[in-house]
Design a binder for these strands. Sequence first.
DNA 1: ACTAAATGTCAAGTACTTATTACATTTATT
DNA 2: AATAAATGTAATAAGTACTTGACATTTAGT
Lengths: 70, 70
Amino acid sequence: MPRARINNRIRRLRFDHDEMTQEELAGRAGCTRQTIIALEQGKYVPSIELAFKIARAFGVTLEEVFQYEE
Amino acid sequence: MPRARINNRIRRLRFDHDEMTQEELAGRAGCTRQTIIALEQGKYVPSIELAFKIARAFGVTLEEVFQYEE
DNA sequence: ACTAAATGTCAAGTACTTATTACATTTATT
DNA sequence: AATAAATGTAATAAGTACTTGACATTTAGT
């Protein structure tokens, strides 16, 4: 598959949610802390399922967290 | 990662788009025909990137194509 | 009925996502 | 300065997404 051009606003959303910790987010999203770290660092793009869970953890839509860069 | 609870409306969207063929959709989304077939059959869930491309091929949002069930 | 287009199946292989475990570093707090 | 909390790093391993290629079946048009 093509070069991933997906970026995310996880770091920003954590900030906006009273500086929610990575561990707290991981817990809510049902993944590990390391996964959150890697996502924030842009090391990879999550599966759709995890993306939906992260969005839900912040109470926003998937597209408010992840964007396809042209 | 958890059991994928993502379903899609690709078949329906193709129908609504004047019965766009799987090959035509694959071309627009930049994937193979076999991938479209497998997705319609629910054999797996696409990457976010492919999901965005498919949505774009139909001119709708990602969430209009893919839904997280419960 | 023929033919072509569309859809489906199968198998092998590559690349990526994510968990796990364990340790290191940075940033508060007191 | 000491401790604890938060963040970062790294390596292994398992499972999944997707391509490629080749062949089979179904559907539609003439």
